[in-house]
Design a protein around this nucleic acid. Sequence first.
DNA 1: GTTGGGGGGCACTTTACCTCA
DNA 2: GATGAGGTAAAGTGCCCCCCA
Length: 208
Amino acid sequence: MAVSPSSISRLELTISMPGFSPPPPPFPSSGTGEEEWITNGGPPRKKLRLSKEQSRLLEESFRQHHTLNPRQKEALALQLKLRPRQVEVWFQNRRARSKLKQTEMECEYLKRWFGSLTEQNRRLQREVEELRALKVGPPTVMSPHSCEPLPASTLTMCPSCERVTTTGLDKGSTKTTTTAVATPTTAATLSSKVGTPALQSRQSSAAC
DNA sequence: GTTGGGGGGCACTTTACCTCA
DNA sequence: GATGAGGTAAAGTGCCCCCCA
């Protein structure tokens, strides 16, 4: 949710509340004179629009800490010539906007990942079809050690990470052969940034 | 250990206002 | 210029959780 020039321009608007006094406690105008509660005889308007400077200071404060204790809230309200409730509301809405943005990023990433998995699935399906077409006997897997065919019973798949594991080789040793399962490289990048529990759990299972 | 009240955060919604076709 | 749709941000509401007496 990028801030468009149009939305910025809105911040410069003045507040008008015809026929009304500022709500208690008296709502003071800012030092810039952009937040005057004025009357012009029209229908009542009661929405505050923050000035550029107020928004800037709030953003700056938000960068330092995403929540405020009562003392910080009071001080910021005093500095901005707003009511503490307005500062509180701004922080609540700001947190919600941050969360929404993060969710959108995750959604985008998951869409891309889904696309790549779909493509990979198609490739593997084609490969299976080709192998089936060539089939002359039971499926065999070649040992990486002896280049001899392995019995199918030695092949297992880890249910969590979906890697194919060959067992019973070299006197009980276990050799893991990573199959062509999609590697969530971007997942690692993204989850390290956003800390998504679901993505982190995927990563941990990949370490199986 | 239990309980009730107060405060804060969050999700969801409403409202006022803006932009644009 | 008027108008309606859609978007955005401020504010309202209700719920939950935590802390403390």
